[in-house]
Design a protein around this nucleic acid. Structure first.
Lengths: 222, 222
DNA sequence: GTAATCCTTACGGAAACCCGTAAATCGCAA
DNA sequence: TTGCGATTTACGGGTTTCCGTAAGGATTAC
């Protein structure tokens, strides 16, 4: 079993249960942080001491409070860790259940397992830890039923996300066009952007822009 | 201390910790349900058996799964319980931290304490349970700093929420007006609704309707 | 080398919005 | 009843979205 595990989870009510699972699995060294920044520090320190962690279990969303932080989310934490210790095993344990979000975690951040917090997530988490230790690939808790071949949501690319983001910030078509020109993102004609928004509206069955953004928010795209 | 407590919480990772707290407080009977419907059933059963619960601790949001349910949220559960056992003490334990939401829980559903899930929520929860037992009123976990006299968000009433809801569902002004006429909600002229939306835009510093809905979503108003 | 296709951009009219002003209605008190 | 103030509704013009059509440019097929 893993020898040294780091848990990044802000909610104390949840971390208790996670640590319990690790103890049951006889992991000798279990560390727990409530902020992403702390997590990165511990990883770096352990590397410098030549006693690196072999597993990270992290949440995605962290509450913000008075404390000023650099890393705001589990995504950012993983990204930062990948730069210093890319070979560490990574399990994400989060409430998120949108396939779009989860797919990018596997494909872009190279996580080993995803467990969604739910009614039986503790046993799912245990399975994921054991599976990861046995080098299984792309472990998904069983209540998530989407397939990695499902092209439906993966077709929505970062270009679309950018449009949705700007729309949700109150930009009008013309401003988006200008912004894209400044960032040299193409296509950037108002008409092309308009067409793309139209496709999104058809795809999401939205009546208008307002509706579209509401749906995008529900899907966690922005 | 309380004699019989019901915990309604779908995430197993959290309920473990909540039950632990209750055990530490020497509560003799602790029951736990993962669905709101079950919760209501247990309350009714206990009443019929003349052994009613004296405390309810519930989450607000419950994940939906294959199971068909009547009650979808903690709000609905509390509302239903209030109809059969209004005198039961009620503590809400949720991630939600928007003052608007929390105020309505106290004012309209008559809860006794609100604890927001956070980095030290377990001790906060313990305090809330003890405070509720000692008949303290309107207990709020300490990381929530808003005051009940703060008029800023409470001014947004259900009328505004209705408008935002319909907007987020893709309704145009005219449709909203018609809908309000059907439901005999006044004012219902397109112009009045327009004006109200305008106020909301000023209040939330939104550039347009799209922006407004994005903000409303972030605030958890819809 | 030409044609077919796709992608980007442009244009125009109708619908919906945005925003200010003016008229109508309602509640209340003199 | 009358008059006043506040709220609700109506109206109008400018802006943006919405949606179809089409021109220009790049890539691919033949």
């Amino acid at each position: 079993m893993f020898k040294k595990v780091l848990v990044a989870e802000d909610l104390d009510s949840i971390s208790i249960a996670v640590v319990q699972v690790l103890e049951e699995l006889q992991v000798p060294v279990i560390h727990h942080v409530k902020y992403c920044d702390e997590g990165l520090l511990k990883i770096k320190k352990a590397l410098a001491d030549k006693e690196p962690y072999d597993l990270l279990i992290t949440d995605l969303s962290f509450k913000s409070d008075h404390r000023k932080v650099n890393l705001n989310s589990g995504d950012e934490l993983i990204d930062a860790i990948n730069k210093v210790q890319p070979n560490i095993k990574k399990i994400v344990f989060s409430i998120e259940d949108k396939s779009y979000r989860i797919k990018t975690l596997f494909n872009e951040l190279g996580i080993n397992a995803y467990v969604s917090k739910g009614r039986n997530s503790i046993s799912e988490l245990r399975n994921a830890i054991e599976g990861t230790f046995n080098n299984e690939e792309k472990i998904l808790s069983s209540d998530l039923s989407f397939s990695f071949n499902d092209k439906s949501l993966i077709e929505i690319e970062s270009y679309d996300i950018s449009i949705l983001k700007l729309l949700s910030q109150g930009y009008i078509l013309e401003s988006i066009s200008k912004e894209f020109k400044d960032l040299s993102i193409t296509p950037n004609g108002t008409s092309s952007i308009e067409k793309r928004i139209n496709k999104l509206k058809i795809y999401f069955k939205a009546n208008n822009n307002v509706h579209l953004i509401a749906i995008a928010k529900d899907f966690g795209l922005v």
